[in-house]
């Protein structure tokens, strides 16, 4: 199947004796928008970090277009340039302006010339509404603006998949909306995304599939209508009821 970008087979991850992920299996197809939900400590971040090889899985494989990327022979930087990641804490480069943040990867990793990189960066900065701020340094802009720049930086690499790890959790409430709306637009335009989130409205309304994780395993997954409307597992029901009551 040419549509499958990532296939994850029997993925496990342990930190010492602490087994954080057990036997994870799932597939990401082109255009999927997958929300990963679950309690704190259930291993959601670890899963994303394994997919981006920021953590080395203890066992199992991650197939990228059919090729296993877990192992020593893999060129991790090259693979990562196809799989972008947006972090909870933005992780912008503090020594660079907004524009430079979005250019450095293109120039250094993809070998684009400066002019092309600038155009590409401007295109995405415009998309996320940050074009007026290209000369600002990260310390001079707000959290929501930083996160939008981080999204533009990831997009400028033209990745095939974008991973988001709680992109709005570090934001003041009034800034959550601006970031979610950028993400929603991306989803509508067909970007393949994996989003760890506590924003249940986003998971329900924007994603094409919802994955509920509990204690390191995928407890239940399915279409948002099914997970939110008719959850099959007791754990899922318990987890969701906490959000309804909140």
């Amino acid at each position: 199947m040419a549509n499958e970008i990532l296939q994850i087979h029997h993925l496990s991850k342990a930190f010492g004796h602490n087994i954080v992920l057990r036997d994870i299996d799932f597939t990401v197809e082109k255009g999927d928008v997958i929300s990963i939900i679950g309690a704190s400590g259930s291993g959601k971040s670890t899963l994303l970090r394994c997919i981006n090889l920021l953590e080395t899985p203890t066992s199992g494989e991650i197939l990228y277009h059919g090729e296993n990327v877990v192992g020593k022979k893999v060129n991790a930087p090259k693979y990562r340039s196809h799989v972008g990641m947006v972090f909870q804490s933005f992780n912008l480069f503090n020594n660079m302006t907004v524009l430079e943040n979005c250019m450095v990867g293109q120039v250094q990793v993809l070998g684009r010339n400066k002019e092309d990189a600038r155009k590409e960066a401007m295109y995405y900065l415009q998309k996320v509404g940050m074009a007026p701020y290209i000369h600002a340094k990260p310390r001079q802009i707000s959290g929501g603006q930083k996160q939008r720049v981080a999204i533009a930086r990831a997009l400028a690499m033209n990745p095939e998949v974008l991973l988001f790890d709680e992109p709005t959790s570090a934001l003041d409430p009034e800034m959550v909306g601006e970031v979610l709306s950028v993400m929603q637009t991306l989803a509508q335009e067909g970007m393949t995304m994996l989003v760890v989130t506590h924003e249940m409205a986003f998971a329900r309304d924007v994603s094409s599939r919802v994955v509920y994780m509990n204690q390191g395993v995928i407890c239940e997954q399915g279409a948002p209508q099914q997970i939110f409307g008719d959850p099959q597992r007791q754990e899922t029901r318990d987890f969701l009821s906490r959000f309804r009551n909140a």
Binding site: N52, L54, P77, K78, Y79, R80, S81, H82, G84, M85, F87, S89, F90, N91, L92, F93, N94, V104, G105, Q108, V109, L110, A150, R153, A154, M157
Partner: peptide
């Protein structure tokens, strides 16, 4: 270390 991860995540090597 977040900035290092940010750089890694767009495919930059340790030296870059």
């Amino acid at each position: 270390p977040g900035q290092t991860e940010g750089a890694k995540a767009i495919g930059m090597t340790h030296w870059q």
